[in-house]
Nucleic acid binder design. Structure first.
Lengths: 332, 332
DNA sequence: CTGAAAGCGCTTACAG
DNA sequence: CTGAAAGCGCTTACAG
């Protein structure tokens, strides 16, 4: 439609066969330099570009990689996607991104579409609902279809036999706890809006491993969480807070400010933030940096290795990336 | 590869022709109910699904829509993308998203790839660099190739003949100004980190239309902007701030807080924010809501209308959406 | 109602 | 070195 110039039209104009045109354009050894020149010149003149669909049909490759993200409005996933994109766009592949919107049903639809021959490989972070219901059949089916798949961030406890990429959530919180202890915090509470999410549980476990008198404030409903945090602060003995996710972090920070407490002096906070916005905000919150772009990059890299069959018979690998703590003004 | 079951394999197993199988599966009137039944049953049994690449080649449609976003880490674009996705994923099309990273060069690459027969239509918000250099040849070329394209958010001043979707930036700022005036602000300054961006200019023009003694603080470098805002506040006569973008807004809010000024009483602020995060933050900033998901939805809708040729000979249309002001704690 | 044939736009053994 | 043929997996006039 758009592209009226085809191998056939070039061949006709040059009075040679389609095969010769094709081979010339693909720089085949079989063709004389002279012919190649003629063909390439005309191709350029006519603005020829091969029909990608036809090439894919012939090569039996879609040249596309499917990505399933729980929610693009979460800045963490936006950054992961950027990391994926930077890596993939330098390859011959393209990304087709779907959003599960944290729904198991939608996630199934996405994988179903992908598995019907629409992509060569898949990158996925499972939805919250999938995580909760521990339903992984739809993911396992992907392997049975022979499509490489890499899981990232939210990794099911029971190994599914796929490559995985994630951070050391458990240890990250331990580091945060250690840091707050060094800063003389005696009463460190843990605040989370993701108590059932895998990463949330790991973070909570990390916290629990550090104290014998834990204070865990965990609610999925944000207004409820808000209330409980305020109540906890009102009791007056908490002098350190570790927040398990962006929402919990903002809630903690707001509650502290509303109560008129002085950061670092009276109470310290470490959490998870959107780095770009945090840098411009007041106060700058001390945070655990998961390096989301790096997560994306490593995830994409792992998949490309599989696709290029460089990992032919190698078992699934589990890449664990390190987080770092960036100190802001909510601790010191 | 993945899908070993094809029309051919079904045909062989049923001892009928490939055409009959194809027609049966497509519910053709030509085929007897009985045969359709047999074919469909076996197809289901074998888990047949048509090879999408082959279908596309035959139908001369890619079933894909290309989206070019300047930067996915900007929450505004993330939300626009969500709006696009919600609308498109309900259609037969899929989205393939590229990020220009605000680079003209990269944007050209994206459009070039799309125009080589990889998508049926394009949605694009031009890069900052494209905006600055006013280089639109690569976009105009798309029309010459007959590929429908819709521009959103950053719309070039000179009409390019494409459908466009954006908000009324000029009027939005006027509303914000009026609101602050009502709140008795006497000295309203305008702060921007996007002075050269189309939307930034429109917003600034809106501001300039309201006052004969304007105070415009506009710098692209954020640390420079930060400094200048602090200096302006130090002079002590500004009692109202309109910020033109997320970064400027956060910078204003921080500067005000650091200076120990009381929001609403001493100084009011209206800007642009990431709504989800703002809701949890302290203070909640009063902001101009652009309804980014709606922008995405309308953009996608416009393209689908074009693709379905329901707008065959209708000239390019310009959809202007309204913003609303959400009052937070930085004004009252 | 069913099937053979042509074609979508390519690539690639294979012959010459 | 060039080209005819087959094929990637479909669809759809056209014959029968």
């Amino acid at each position: 439609m758009k592209n009226v110039v085809s191998l056939k039209s070039l061949a006709k104009e040059l009075n040679i066969s389609v095969s010769t045109v094709s081979k010339s354009l693909n720089d085949s050894e079989e063709i004389s330099e002279q012919t190649k020149e003629r063909v390439k010149n005309l191709a350029k003149l006519r603005g020829y570009s091969p029909n990608p669909i036809a090439v894919r049909l012939q090569k039996q490759e879609t040249m596309q990689i499917g990505v399933v993200l729980p929610n693009i409005e979460n800045p963490f996933f936006a950054s992961v996607l950027k990391g994926i994109d930077e890596f993939i766009s330098a390859s011959k592949y393209n990304i087709i991104t779907f959003f599960s919107n944290e729904s198991l049903e939608r996630e199934k639809e996405c994988l179903d579409y992908f598995s019907k021959g629409n992509v060569d490989g898949i990158l996925i972070c499972i939805a919250e609902e999938t995580n909760k219901k521990k339903t992984f059949d739809h993911i396992i089916q992907i392997r049975q279809k022979g499509i490489p798949l890499v899981l990232f961030d939210r990794i099911p406890m029971q190994p599914l036999g796929f490559d995985t990429v994630h951070v050391n959530d458990y240890d990250s919180i331990i580091s945060a706890y250690d840091y707050l202890e060094e800063k003389k915090c005696k009463n460190i509470a843990f605040v989370s809006s993701i108590p059932t999410l895998i990463v949330g549980r790991l973070r909570e476990d990390g916290y629990l491993s550090k104290t014998t008198k834990p204070t865990v404030i965990a609610f999925e409903k944000l207004n409820e969480l808000q209330l409980k945090v305020q109540e906890a602060l009102a009791e007056g003995n908490i002098d350190g807070l570790i927040a398990a996710d962006i929402e919990a972090t903002l809630i903690c920070s707001s509650a502290i400010q509303k109560r008129g407490l002085t950061f670092a002096k009276q109470i310290s906070l470490i959490g998870y933030v959107n780095a770009a916005q945090n840098d411009l905000s007041y106060p700058k919150i001390s945070y655990i940096d998961q390096h989301p772009k790096e997560i994306g990059k490593q995830t994409a890299k792992m998949l490309l290795l599989r696709l290029e069959s460089k990992l032919e018979n190698i078992a699934a690998s589990d890449i664990i990336l390190n987080t770092t703590i960036t100190i802001g003004e909510t601790s010191n």
